[in-house]
Computed example of a mutant assay.
Amino acid sequence: MIEPLALRMAQHIKSVVPDHPASVPVLKHALAVLLNMAFITGLTLVISVFTGHTREVVTIMAAFAFLRQMTGGIHLKSGMGCVAVSTLLFTGLSFITLDDKWNMIATIISMLLILIFAPSGIERQTRIPKRYFPLLKVAALITVGLNLWFAYPFVAISFFAQTLLLINVRRWKTS
């Protein structure tokens, strides 16, 4: 659903502004990313209103997205698959409560996963040169490590979920 919609929108933009420097495939990709993000955010927020967990969901989505920019992670092939999985993930995480002990454990495991696997799969998703990837790892470690001080449970669970997505089992098996 997302890809065809993005294609129709890109073709419409190109027909209205034929001299636009971006090609239809480039516009389609950019629009697909934006639509994906909009559907995930909108659907998750609507569900959170009914579950009464809006504050938790907003915290989880913000923490997840912020860390994902530094660490990368597994990407699903389908835009709608990503919307479904992300919406279920963020909604589900909003129901998990961590006490201080589990908050610390989740944060420390997240830091270990970053040390081992980050950044993962961002080579074709960022314009940041590969020579700066070690700085992304350090920034991610500092970001996650700050939660040892602040001890926000929904941030810890969001970081934990994001760092689990750094583990690319297919790449690990072939190494």
Results as ranks from 00 to 15, higher is better:
residue 139 A to V: 02
residue 57 V to C: 13
residue 10 A to E: 02
residue 33 V to E: 10
residue 105 I to G: 00
residue 40 I to M: 03
residue 139 A to F: 04
residue 164 L to R: 00
residue 121 G to P: 03
residue 135 L to P: 00
residue 133 F to K: 01
residue 170 R to I: 09
residue 116 I to V: 15
residue 171 R to K: 13
residue 67 L to M: 08
residue 98 L to Q: 08
residue 155 V to Y: 07
residue 117 F to S: 10
residue 162 Q to C: 11
residue 152 Y to T: 14
residue 6 A to N: 02
residue 66 F to M: 12
residue 131 R to D: 07
residue 63 A to S: 15
residue 138 V to I: 13
residue 112 L to R: 00
residue 13 I to E: 08
residue 135 L to C: 09
residue 105 I to R: 00
residue 107 T to A: 02
residue 37 M to A: 12
residue 165 L to V: 10
residue 79 G to T: 07
residue 134 P to Q: 05
residue 30 A to N: 11
residue 35 L to G: 14
residue 174 T to M: 13
residue 112 L to G: 08
residue 133 F to D: 01
residue 65 A to E: 02
residue 45 L to S: 02
residue 34 L to Q: 05
residue 74 I to P: 01
residue 31 L to Q: 10
residue 91 T to V: 08
residue 33 V to I: 07
residue 57 V to E: 07
residue 109 I to T: 08
residue 71 T to F: 06
residue 116 I to H: 09
residue 151 A to Y: 01
residue 45 L to W: 02
residue 96 I to F: 11
residue 27 L to P: 11
residue 14 K to G: 09
residue 138 V to G: 03
residue 12 H to C: 12
residue 54 T to A: 14
residue 30 A to C: 09
residue 58 V to T: 14
residue 156 A to F: 04
residue 174 T to L: 13
residue 28 K to D: 13
residue 41 T to F: 12
residue 8 R to N: 14
residue 128 I to G: 05
residue 103 N to V: 12
residue 86 S to P: 11
residue 3 E to M: 01
residue 71 T to Y: 03
residue 103 N to T: 15
residue 55 R to P: 00
residue 174 T to G: 05
residue 123 E to H: 09
residue 52 G to V: 05
residue 28 K to T: 14
residue 1 M to C: 04
residue 52 G to I: 04
residue 128 I to D: 03
residue 52 G to M: 03
residue 70 M to F: 14
residue 8 R to M: 13
residue 35 L to E: 13
residue 67 L to R: 02
residue 111 M to Q: 09
residue 9 M to K: 05
residue 15 S to Q: 11
residue 140 A to P: 07
residue 148 L to D: 01
residue 99 D to W: 02
residue 30 A to K: 08
residue 90 F to Y: 13
residue 136 L to H: 01
residue 114 I to K: 09
residue 49 V to F: 06
residue 167 I to Q: 05
residue 129 P to A: 10
residue 96 I to S: 10
residue 40 I to S: 02
residue 164 L to W: 00
residue 40 I to Q: 00
residue 136 L to K: 01
